[in-house]
């Protein structure tokens, strides 16, 4: 992990409110599920903002940023060449499954970023994987072209039924799981999705890892602002012990964010 002063190399709209942003970094590798703390250009916000690493190759990293507030707006409005500070790779990423187990990836919304990274890494190693990907409507399904290019097996759902199955992605996943032997689950998305995956994991006794979100001040484990509760009710740091946790490590009845 280090902090590097770099420049935006590419910025591209993926939908009306999500952007692909690329910048050079000086680290050599990352674990899918790890994230970066991005300095936001223009002094509009004070703290850095966390984003999952979607891709990394030839020294260039990519994030997918959905605009939800002032920081994400300013980052998405930045131009190619804008100077930014990028701290990373932070946190603990996904642990890869055993060779023979099919990896079942589950993404909701911009959770596709880290899951895309995982999917690409698994396919590069010749592992079997299926990606379940849900969004509100078709235009919110991102990275579909890239997923096709890397040969990913993708099953989609939208809440309005405009693409793939109608409904929530966890429902589609649950239906299919009966026909998959020894699956292990890997999820990144809104808290509701993580919770649903944890519930499926518990009910079916299948292993699952989820990437958790928490408001973060430092991203490096020193402020204790990002804690979430582990299975014994103790606080653990989302930015350090996570953001990816085995669902059995966490307490699921406590209220989200």
């Amino acid at each position: 992990m280090n902090d590097c002063a770099t420049k935006i190399e590419l910025i591209e709209a993926l939908s009306n409110d999500a952007y692909r942003i690329r910048f050079a970094v000086d680290w050599k590798a990352f674990d899918p599920g790890q994230f970066v703390m991005m300095g936001i250009p223009g002094n509009v916000v004070f703290l850095r903002r966390p984003f999952g690493i979607a891709r990394f190759s030839n020294g260039v990293a990519e994030i997918c940023c959905k605009v939800v507030g002032r920081g994400t707006r300013a980052l998405s409005d930045a131009k190619v060449g804008t100077r930014i500070d990028v701290l990373g790779p932070c946190g603990r990423g996904f642990r890869f499954p055993q060779k023979e187990e099919p990896a079942i990836l589950v993404a909701g919304g911009y959770g596709i970023g880290p899951i895309f990274g995982l999917c690409e890494a698994l396919l590069a190693q010749g592992r079997r994987c299926i990606l379940y990907y849900g969004a509100r409507e078709t235009s919110h399904l991102l990275y579909l072209d890239e997923l096709a290019k890397i040969g990913a097996n993708v099953k989609c759902s939208t809440e309005d039924g405009s693409h793939g199955a109608r409904g929530m992605i966890a429902e589609l996943l649950e239906k299919d799981l009966d026909n998959i032997e020894k699956p292990s689950l890997f999820a990144c998305g809104p808290h509701g999705l993580s919770k649903a995956v944890a519930e499926i994991s518990r009910r079916r006794g299948v292993p699952a890892q989820v990437s958790m979100e928490s408001y973060m001040a430092c991203g490096i484990g020193v402020c204790l602002g990002c804690a979430c509760k582990d299975a014994d009710g103790n606080f653990v740091r989302t930015c350090r012990e996570g953001p990816v946790f085995d669902v059995r490590e966490l307490q699921w009845d406590s209220s989200p964010l």
Partner: peptide
């Protein structure tokens, strides 16, 4: 000390608030 419940931190104008609870 376990500290306070979440959320514990929030950005404010030119700074931040924390209520870690001396964890």
């Amino acid at each position: 000390r376990a500290g306070n419940e979440m959320p514990r931190v929030i950005e404010t104008a030119s700074g931040m608030l924390n209520a870690i609870g001396l964890a």
